[in-house]
Write a protein that binds this DNA or RNA. Structure first.
Lengths: 236, 236
DNA sequence: GTCAAAGCGTGACGATACGTCACATTTTGC
DNA sequence: GCAAAATGTGACGTATCGTCACGCTTTGAC
């Protein structure tokens, strides 16, 4: 039993069609080719119809971002099927994030772009809120992992640090690494290992800073990472 | 004795004039108002003249970004006039970065935008290279601080971690925090302290992870931070 | 089954901004 | 003092955004 009329369902389906087309264009031809006319053309609808769904270009960007965040949240949930101790499960989230950004760099570009004020101001309030909610969803998964670690006695946060703050800090570290990494490929003068290795190393250091047991000196997280990559493959 | 002719000097001066105008527009009216016509209008030159200096809009963005990075590098150098142990000096850099982004959020928006591929591809090679060089300059300051810490025996990097990687990791953490912070102001459901406090806490955790002596358990870095803010004010 | 009202799709149109170029003006060097 | 080179100009062509009045389709009342 569907409470929506056929027309309403068609409307939602078309919205999805537009978003799929937009994502397709973005993935194959990059941000430069991302125009409303192109979306309309590829879907064989008129430009005006696209604007029946979205207030402006940035609105579409936010909608895509929303979808991406939902996907990321799902990837997080899937990653948690990995069996292991609390810290290994946190690493599973990091690995999922890493895979997401390497697989869909254009989409990560949007996630970065949406951070700037310009986009957020232009997009409709509705979309921005949905986006924030999806962001929250992914955060919640991470929070649950941290919470479980505390409950299990693997982690004791400093009295000055809230769970939210720990979550935010970890997120920011991962985001920073993944956002800066591509640009630093260009800088030849830096002697850097590959992004995945940096990711594992830096996560290890930060989690050691938190005193999240077992510490990297007590446990082989490199091996965990290798197993994680395999585990992810079986999922995808 | 100047080796340049008057004309050449005038040319360089005008380029600076354009950049100053561009930055002014950006600061006062945001990215949306940032147009070539506006820059030309404000400087009382024709649009064509602007294009004698820059290949495209993104080229100007890169030039601005270059300047910003130079300023940031200078702010770093100034921050190092703060007397203290090696880890306090690293905190001085973090504080300088924090102040830079809070004082000029629009410019930090550019620094974020320039991370996306789109901008880098459109801008001229010359500008992108200059930008990377400036980036490198700021990195070098940070590297020197880490190097000094190692030399002083305050820090011993794991054998698997190069100095460059440590530098990159710290940079990424700071960048991530500062890039995500404004957006998270919106998320009311998160219980987060103010950005400066998060910054200090997270830096403490990461540096503790590195085992950078004295550890945050052995030393009052909150007090260092307060002194740093005062010290920065006197510099300005 | 019919028809009017409401809803929906359209693409031409106005506006804005980018980037170019042929021409006008100034400077340089002889 | 003049020709050639360098420099400044702004109108123009192109692209894209976002709008809107018009025509077509669906709906539901009779």
């Amino acid at each position: 039993m569907n409470t929506l009329t056929r027309r309403q369902r068609e409307f939602l389906q078309r919205e999805q069609l537009f978003l799929d087309a937009a994502r397709q264009i973005l993935r194959s031809d990059g941000v430069a080719a991302f125009t409303i006319d192109r979306i309309a053309g590829n879907t064989e609808y008129a430009k005006g119809t696209v604007y029946k769904h979205f207030t402006c270009k940035e609105d579409i960007l936010c909608a895509l971002c929303h979808e991406s965040l939902v996907h990321l949240g799902e990837a997080f949930s899937k990653a948690l099927t990995f069996p292991g101790n609390s810290r290994e499960r946190m690493m599973a989230l990091g690995t999922a994030y890493l895979q997401f950004t390497t697989r869909f760099p254009e989409e990560f570009d949007i996630l970065i772009a949406v951070r700037t004020n310009n986009v957020r101001q232009k997009a409709s309030e509705k979309r921005v809120e949905a986006m924030i909610a999806a962001d929250q969803g992914a955060h919640d998964v991470m929070r649950s992992v941290i919470g479980a670690a505390i409950a299990a006695g693997d982690l004791t946060l400093p009295t000055t640090t809230s769970l939210d703050e720990a979550c935010f800090g970890l997120w920011a570290m991962a985001f920073g690494l993944l956002a800066l990494a591509p640009a630093n490929d260009v800088i030849d003068s830096l002697e850097l290992p590959s992004i995945p290795i940096i990711m594992v190393n830096q996560m290890n250091l930060l989690l050691d800073g938190y005193g999240w047991r077992p510490l990297s000196t007590e446990f082989d997280y490199q091996q965990t990472f290798a197993r994680l990559l395999k585990h992810m493959e079986t999922l995808q």
